[in-house]
Amino acid sequence: MLELWLLVIAAALGTYLWRGLGVLLSGRIKVNSELFNWVACVAYAMVAGLISRIVIVPGGMLAQTALAERLVACALAVAAYYLSRRNLLVGVGAGVAAIMAMVALH
């Protein structure tokens, strides 16, 4: 329990590091350098990797659903997002409704 609290505090400090450093360095560094491009790629890839892993190989409750069901729900969510003129709430709502409907039916 204590260990988990320390983990949360350290993660919060690690996250703040960038925010605080940004305040400190504003006006002194160029943000469109190649180093920043690489860092942006790593951050994007890490989030994309985690999300695609959760959709393809989930743990917990989502493991009860079929891969096809999760993929169909995600595809419907993306379609609903674009059909609703880029409304994120509509897209997410459609995806959640789709997975619940498919699980309820089987």
Partner: peptide, 17 residues
């Protein structure tokens, strides 16, 4: 976790001015 937050550096740098 720290690496996922790296996007905040360029954001803060451009926001502050």
């Amino acid at each position: 976790v720290t690496l996922t937050a790296a996007r905040f550096l360029p954001m803060a740098v451009s926001l502050m001015p």
